[in-house]
Design a protein around this nucleic acid. Structure first.
Lengths: 161, 161
DNA sequence: CATTTTTACTTTTGTAATGCAAGTTAAATT
DNA sequence: AATTTAACTTGCATTACAAAAGTAAAAATG
């Protein structure tokens, strides 16, 4: 039940102290930001939920990324209250601070992918008041909610159709 | 003299139309954002300059990433005016729109790397007025300047010590 | 309460990406 | 004319990733 697969993660040996490089070394691989996205946008919290991501991450890679993100202090792992098989992964403060990066990347992708899945009214709202939305999303996620999913979602609070 | 090494780039086959995934497929590999950083922060423009990056990219990988970024419309390649051996790589509009993402990542890295190279007054200025600084950086880079390097650098315009 | 299912991983193995060193070609410099 | 520079390319070893199957503990089911 313990994750002992350390995984490799090249370029984790601090090639420089450029802050952008530091960020990339922490969550700049292929999957880390997608895992964080699943938490922030869709309220996912367990291994099984992450495994079902749209992009199809492999189980071994997912395990290695969760270990990596936990080690880097982005994620915190706790046992599930009632179901002792489950582990709950939550964003730490450090992890919550990645949200602004996600929002910028979502804005860029929504602008340039002609077939984007992003709801344009959502993108517009975020662009209109980035700071306020960042705060609202942060609080929501901190309380176990997410942007799109669940009863306490950000979009339901804002009554976005 | 022509780059025919296409490179591979896994996950370039549009696994989803999530805007974050789209961004990651475009510039979410290990090196692309560091190349864009070199342009935006240090005014680099040629293959040789990118090759000298602090993090030490391999020549074949650099070539493949430049091709990739050009194909995705992030970079534009033009011949050097006077020296016909050189190629100049510039950011397109689409590439300039990546700047806000870089700023967020720089902010995060500067906050969490205790040994960061980032000048704290620079980070503070960006955090104080993100929108204005984004515009100023964008214009500067569009005119061939950069944040830290060169006579028309953003920091020299702002007279940051 | 024995069996099946679920959950969170690990292990194995093939494939693809990366990294390093050396090589190539055209243009510029000496 | 010879050397150096710039922008790549090539070959090969190493590493990371992906897919599939396997494992162990806890929970649900009959």
């Amino acid at each position: 039940m313990q994750a002992c697969y350390a995984g490799a993660m090249k370029r984790s040996d601090n090639k420089s102290h450029c802050p952008i490089n530091f960020s990339l070394e922490t969550f700049g691989d292929t999957w880390s930001l997608l895992i964080i996205r699943d938490i922030v946008y869709f309220g996912k919290k367990t291994y099984g939920e992450f495994l079902e991501s749209e992009e199809g991450i492999s189980s071994n890679i997912l395990a290695s990324r969760l270990v990596h993100l936990e080690r880097k202090g982005i994620l915190v792992k706790e046992p599930h209250e009632s179901d002792k098989r489950k582990e709950i992964y939550l964003l730490s403060e450090k992890g919550l601070d990645v949200i602004p990066i996600l929002l910028e990347m979502a804005g860029w992708g929504a602008k340039y992918d002609p077939e984007t899945d992003a709801p344009q009214n959502w993108i517009a709202i975020v662009n209109a008041d980035r700071e306020r939305m960042t705060g609202l999303i942060r609080e929501t996620v901190q309380n176990g909610g997410s942007i799109f999913t669940g009863p306490n979602s950000v979009v339901s609070k804002l009554a976005i159709t």
